[in-house]
Design a protein around this nucleic acid. Structure first.
Lengths: 250, 250
DNA sequence: GCACGTGTTCCCGTTCAACGGGAGATTCAC
DNA sequence: GTGAATCTCCCGTTGAACGGGAACACGTGC
């Protein structure tokens, strides 16, 4: 008998196992992992043990498994996002303290908006985004900014793939999105009223790196009917300051 | 011809590659990686490509390689350290704003002190520690706290391994460390004058989780001759507040 | 132009380490 | 007790990983 390989390259395996950990389920038994990753129990045990030895997974007192600190340690060596987050933090705090609403920083990651940091509103309302969470590009203000100032082939790719509809207000027609993007480029910021939740409006501005390229989006989430001009000004000011602190002049 | 396996389990391989990325070298060519991980060039290319496909590594414009955001994303699913960092942050900010020196949070990781977060002194002096950096347990104030309140077999393991001497003041004799640990337990905090750098003193207190177990060390770095009582009081207050915010009563 | 160094891609025969079925140990719950 | 769930260990099979090597693609210096 023996093995009937499933066609994955060893590394996939590994990623599949890590992927069984979700933000809501951070500890699980080995057998559970095996079930979710569709691996035979004995195989799951073998690989998990390897990963534990390597420090990428850890076991708690009950021998259940969770993601290891080693992984976090390694991930901090990804300089660019870390530098960005570091540079943005003080200015995000300023925005948050003045606008008093959720303040978020997102980057482009595999055709989605990935949220690097989020400072919650003191009067904490909606909670759609979270640190390390993702949102589709066409449906969030941050995503629209990243898309509008991104490469043309990214736009093609996103527009031609299915544009999921999150609320009644979400733009799901490629033409509508395309003219929205033109508007974003012209205004210099994106306003997404009710695209994600009926009750709130996202507002995002582009953040530039030391060469002037748009690398991130800084955003706040306001109640749907709130006055947005003050937030826009604050966001732009913060984005400029972040760019400056990254070394971008003028 | 063919292969002479080096005896590693596939996963090791993988970790060896990730380990070639250091805080100072965050992008490199595939061949470079191969050299450092002591892998034949063709093998390095194969594995790196797998990792890139899996999203754990990324290529920049010049096809050079860096650590991927995917890894960071996965690492955020490691709940416990994240929760701790989250809970500690506001109180660390308070300590930092009142003591006005480097303020740090460290946990025990593979017999070393791993620094989860660091708020730098406005009058930024020494810079030995950094986020995701490590220090030996016997030579840092944070380490001494983690060691003193840790499991007995941890203490044995550390004391019987080589106690590296970082400065003239570093305790390198097992007996000296042992009585230092007794002192730490008795005082409830650790003072490490000049153990790491001649010119500075580390001061650390234990942080407890919701069950009362010591899970982290909160520390500040003062100039060697500075008055430390105020800092100690502030640290203890912050540690208590952190424990309370994690759910620990009394 | 040519020679050289460096980084990368592709090919392919060898071989050994990963594979997973299965049996048995262990623990917990009812 | 019975039964379910989880984990450990063993072991024969085999296919996928391995890496040497050749060729390609740059760039650079002369």
């Amino acid at each position: 008998m023996a093995n009937s390989p499933t066609g994955d390259s060893g590394t996939d395996r590994f990623v599949r196992i890590l992927d069984t950990f979700t933000p809501t389920r951070t500890v699980q038994t080995v057998t559970e992992i095996g079930r979710r990753a569709e691996l035979p129990s004995s195989t799951a045990h073998r690989i998990v043990n390897e990963l534990v030895n390597a420090g990428l997974l850890e076991r708690d007192e009950d021998r259940r498994v969770r993601i290891g600190m080693r992984l976090w340690e390694l991930s901090t060596r990804s300089s660019h996002a870390l530098r960005l987050r570091q540079a943005a933090m003080p200015f995000m705090e300023r925005v948050q303290s003045r606008v008093r609403e959720h303040t978020q920083l997102a980057i482009l990651e595999q055709d989605e908006a990935l949220f690097l940091e989020r400072l919650s509103s003191p009067a904490s309302g909606s909670n759609v985004t979270r640190v390390a969470g993702r949102l589709p590009l066409h449906a969030s203000s941050s995503g629209l900014v990243l898309l509008a100032f991104g490469l043309p082939d990214l736009q093609e790719r996103v527009l031609s793939s299915g544009l999921t509809q999150l609320t009644r207000a979400t733009l799901s027609d490629p033409h509508a999105v395309r003219s929205k993007l033109a508007e974003v480029r012209q205004l210099g910021h994106a306003i997404a009223p009710g695209y994600i939740e009926e009750v709130s409006t996202g507002i995002a501005v582009p953040v530039r790196d030391e060469t002037g390229r748009v690398i991130a989006a800084l955003s706040v989430v306001l109640p749907r009917d709130a006055e947005s001009d003050f937030a826009i000004v604050e966001l732009h000011r913060a984005a400029t300051d972040i760019a400056r602190s990254l070394g971008f002049r003028s």
